[in-house]
């Protein structure tokens, strides 16, 4: 019996808010002003734009940890049209979360949402989703807002291509098409503007293949965000480390290159050195290239690249996308 009751009380809630139209417009304006449009590099199915939600007056921004974060020249456009570079404060692969900071003057203050005051409404509640979907909103326009209902709260087995959502905790499933191109990292609120969660990626469900619209509640993200703000990345499951990785010896003898040594937990996959006459050089790879994609898979760390290269079969054609001096270049080669 609790299900239907919740639906009806949600309808009553909507009615109440409809009588307070002014506050509704105000809360929509407030929420929009805390969402930034992210612009970076994309390729193929990977969009060159995304969304982020400002969580502090200093300009901390949360978003999903996707390919955009690794491109090296990420820009945020705030609701009033101002542009900022972003610094990566920390990330958590298992929570698919990145915490960034707008690179602004010391005393600059931003509108933000109070993630500590976030609520997780019951299934059946009305929600609003704010995002830079389809990068419709250019310049100083506010982002798009769509309405819907929380349809379920559940664990989610979904992915895109080879990438699988690593999140183990429950997510909110939404009945509206909220997770569009560029919407990941946008803000989910209730109808009164109280923050609820962070919009996820465009993913297909593992079983049905249908597109899933979901958000991760701040309730789940808050401890992770706190940990990142306290210092560095959250410890990841060592699943990745346990996977076989290509050795330095194989890298030099077969590929003819070395990667940046693993100085950090998440060392970016920079090519440190290439050996003249090697397969790497013939294909066009250069010292200083940052590997961002192999085929359609995002490479976030040297560890990820080593794992990938250990798995890939000799003789296959691959496309390696590198960031070279700020520009993405695609390199086609056969696996040596």
């Amino acid at each position: 019996m609790t299900g239907p009751v919740n639906v009806f009380s949600a309808i009553c809630l909507l009615t109440v808010s409809a009588f307070a139209e002014v506050s509704r417009y105000e809360s929509i304006a407030d929420s929009s002003s805390a969402v930034v449009k992210l612009f970076g590099a994309g390729l193929g199915h990977l969009d060159a734009y995304g969304s982020g939600t400002i969580i502090s007056a200093d300009g901390h921004v949360v978003t999903v940890w996707n390919h955009l974060i690794n491109t090296g020249y990420l820009t945020a456009v705030t609701a009033d049209g101002l542009r900022f570079r972003l610094d990566v404060i920390g990330t958590s692969a298992v929570h698919d979360l990145a915490v960034l900071k707008l690179n602004a003057a010391e005393n600059e203050r931003f509108p933000y949402i109070d993630r500590v005051a976030a609520l997780k409404p019951d299934v059946g509640s009305q929600i609003l989703a704010f995002s830079n979907m389809f990068h419709v909103a250019t310049g100083n326009e506010p982002v798009s807002v769509v309405h819907g209902i929380i349809a379920a709260e559940t664990e989610l087995a979904a992915g895109f291509g080879r990438w699988k959502l690593p999140l183990q905790s429950k997510v909110l499933i939404l009945d509206a098409v909220t997770n569009n191109s560029g919407a990941a990292g946008g803000l989910l609120t209730d109808v009164e503007g109280t923050p609820v969660g962070l919009l996820g990626r465009e993913l297909r469900h593992d079983d049905s293949g249908t597109w899933v619209n979901y958000a991760v509640p701040f309730e789940t993200l808050n401890p992770v965000i706190d940990a990142i703000l306290l210092g560095g990345s959250v410890r990841q499951d060592d699943e990745e480390a346990a996977a076989p990785q290509i050795s330095d010896r194989q890298l030099t003898s077969v590929w003819g290159m070395t990667l940046l040594p693993k100085v950090l937990k998440e060392t970016p996959a920079y090519i440190d050195r290439v050996i003249p006459g090697s397969a790497a050089v013939k294909a066009g790879l250069r010292r200083g290239d940052l590997v961002v994609l192999v085929n359609d898979d995002v490479i976030q760390t040297t560890a990820k690249l080593r794992t990938y290269l250990a798995q890939i079969r000799s003789g296959l054609r691959v496309t390696i996308t590198v960031n070279r001096n700020g520009a993405l270049q695609s390199i086609q080669m056969r696996v040596p």
């Binding site: 419709v136 909103a137 250019t138 326009e141 506010p142 982002v143 798009s144 807002v145 769509v146 309405h147 509206a176 098409v177």
Partner: peptide
């Protein structure tokens, strides 16, 4: 049924026509 998601939106033309200026975005 839906809500207005954005106003004063601009949608690029195809070739030089079918250009949507100052349009209303809805969900």
């Amino acid at each position: 049924y839906g809500i207005i998601s954005g106003i004063h939106r601009y949608q690029y033309p195809a070739n030089t026509f079918l250009e949507y200026t100052d349009c209303i975005q809805i969900d």
